[in-house]
């Protein structure tokens, strides 16, 4: 389960800023917290925003297979190898659920993939960081999936029915992803000194990027307001980020690992953990395409797609030849 960057510059809410908010029926439905379904009339900007957000979310799942897929062949035990395979497989499945949800809005998956492959669509920047050690499998599960869960649980109540339903299924299937990551780190932290150091190094590298998964601070996220009004977004970036920090700090203590923020402190008056300032210039660099793995992730994705073209063509040609012979059965 991977977070979209709701409200980040990767998401364009503003391109249609003058569009209407929808007709009275639509607004009444939204205000009653009802669900919009595929064939309903909806404002163009609502449709466009959803396509963009769902597609970006789907792309993130698909690109997100790579940093973890990177360690399938090297997993240090067969149990871990099986878990990792199942997890990366889930990400493919979740990408498919999300593309299917996007397609209910009248776009085609091939069109969306084409936009990903040509750089016109973004994916979550977290996947442009490298997975350098086995402990990164733990840190991704614990921090990245953890942040994604916080981001995505509210989307199960999104105003667009197919997106909300896909998210229900994804959240249900995801329940093991974060836990297995925590378990990896817990084992490493309590293992040999070298393993403990590996775990700490991974947390040091993934902590700040995972905080940035929630997008820029609210005062720099001008487009969130309308998505809130439309019931696509339920909480602000900063609210969700705070929720994640409050959840995660005690877990880090249980792991026996430190979070790389000397200013991290508990605020007695608010009951929240306060972090130091987040350096968003790095995030914007990665979004701009200058992260450590942007080029490699795209090259891998495009390569797989291009190498598979002859296979997809062959299956389509076979279907054309054999259409009449397709097996059918009575249903009941």
């Amino acid at each position: 389960m991977y977070g979209d960057h709701s409200g980040t510059p990767e998401q364009v809410w503003s391109h249609d800023a003058y569009a209407d908010d929808g007709d009275a029926d639509f607004l009444a439905l939204i205000q009653a917290d009802g669900r919009v379904e595929p064939r309903d009339a909806m404002p163009n900007a609502y449709r466009a925003s959803l396509v963009r957000q769902i597609a970006q979310h789907a792309h993130s799942e698909i690109i997100g297979m790579q940093p973890e897929g990177n360690w399938i062949s090297r997993a240090p035990s067969l149990k871990r190898k099986a878990i990792l395979m199942a997890k990366v497989q889930d990400e493919a499945g979740h990408g498919l659920y999300l593309y299917a949800a996007a397609e209910t809005l009248g776009v085609d998956r091939s069109e969306l993939l084409d936009k990903l492959h040509t750089g016109r669509h973004k994916y979550s920047s977290i996947f442009n960081y490298p997975t350098l050690t086995w402990a990164d499998m733990g840190a991704i599960g614990w921090l990245v999936d953890g942040a994604a869960i916080v981001n995505q649980v509210p989307i199960t109540r999104c105003s667009y029915g197919p997106y909300a339903r896909a998210m229900v299924r994804i959240c249900k299937e995801e329940s093991f992803h974060q836990r297995q990551g925590f378990e990896i780190l817990h084992t490493l932290s309590n293992g040999s000194p070298a393993q403990h150091a590996m775990a700490q190094d991974a947390v040091d590298r993934w902590w700040w990027p995972s905080l940035m998964m929630f997008g820029p601070p609210d005062d720099a996220s001008p487009n969130s307001e309308r998505s809130m009004r439309w019931g696509i977004k339920r909480f602000s970036n900063d609210e969700l980020r705070q929720r994640f920090v409050d959840m995660t700090v005690p877990q880090a203590q249980a792991l026996g690992l430190t979070l790389p923020d000397p200013e991290l402190a508990y605020d007695d008056t608010t009951g929240h953990w306060r972090t130091g300032a987040i350096d968003f210039t790095e995030l914007f660099e990665v979004i701009a395409g200058n992260g450590p793995c942007n080029a490699a992730r795209m090259a891998h994705r495009r390569g797989a797609h291009e190498r598979g073209q002859w296979v997809r063509d062959a299956a389509a040609a076979y279907a054309d030849k054999h259409r009449s012979a397709t097996a059918t059965g009575a249903v009941a």
Partner: peptide, 26 residues
């Protein structure tokens, strides 16, 4: 039978198999 989602496949035989792998792996 209840609707669970959609997928892409070249033909019915592959669609059934893809559905098995995608929607019933748990």
């Amino acid at each position: 039978h209840g609707h669970v989602g959609s997928l892409h496949a070249p033909d019915a035989a592959m669609a059934l198999r893809n559905a098995r792998d995608l929607y019933t792996r748990r």
